[in-house]
Nucleic acid binder design. Structure first.
Lengths: 130, 130
DNA sequence: ATCATTGTATTAAGTGATTAATACAATAAT
DNA sequence: ATTATTGTATTAATCACTTAATACAATGAT
């Protein structure tokens, strides 16, 4: 696995975002057991304490739960996962729009840029499928 | 002025982003003198050293220059400012699209979310104009 | 000429994130 | 029963960011 972290932000915050992304996109499914703290630490090449800190946050927001010696699991509440996905999507969209308006990009231009970016990504994906 | 900083990221990096935004949206115009390090530090309620660090970075990327005791100025190269704006817009768009695809949002849904967000922002702006 | 303001530099201290090295308790596997 | 693995907790050390308190040199304003 491995991962390139952004040096400008604490790793545990980036891990939270990564784990939430895994849950939102279905890589980690409802009720599924996730890797142990120690294995995740090996995968991401960070200290187990740093992984632990991120996972505790996942529990605090109800996305995971741990059984002392059995392991850690994703919430079995599928609706909670659906909500997570929708909230992440809306938050990211709002942040994006606010940032674009802050640098004085017009509405039509914002939509055009997104459309153009999606088109170029699509071509990339097609190439990868060959 | 004042500002609420994100605790998850170094302030000097956030200042760089803020200053670049000022240049991109025209709040700080080409050739214009900008406030002194000490005044900016007061405005943003941070240490002068932190402002200095951000401004040095602005110089390193050619967006500003300083005259030892006269003050600091925005680049007089308007094209460089135009390029900054375009690059910021494209980078933010690419980051946004990649993040949305990471949480498995379809292309049409991405565009719909942006459109819906723009619509709601527009209503807000209209209300503010009364 | 004098003084205030400018960018710049230096040193020290404090804070938070991270790593490191352990240790403990509970359960599953053997 | 024994062993390995699990989440969890603790303590110390390191590093980067930030603040703080200065100081210096050059220029504009008076």
């Amino acid at each position: 696995m491995s991962y390139k972290f952004d040096e400008s932000q604490p790793i545990y915050l980036q891990l939270i975002e990564i784990f939430k992304t895994y849950i939102a996109n279905g890589a980690w499914k409802a009720g599924e057991k996730i890797e142990s703290v120690r294995n995740l630490a090996l995968d991401f090449a960070v200290n187990p304490n740093t992984v632990q800190r991120a996972l505790v946050e996942l529990e605090n927001i109800g996305l995971a739960y741990s059984q002392r010696t059995t392991g850690r699991f994703i919430t079995q509440n599928q609706e909670k996962i659906n909500n997570l996905k929708h909230e992440m999507a809306e938050n990211k969209t709002r942040d994006f729009v606010i940032q674009m308006q802050a640098i004085d990009i017009e509405q039509r231009e914002i939509l055009d840029l997104v459309q153009r970016c999606l088109d170029s990504e699509e071509i990339t994906n097609q190439q990868e499928n060959h």
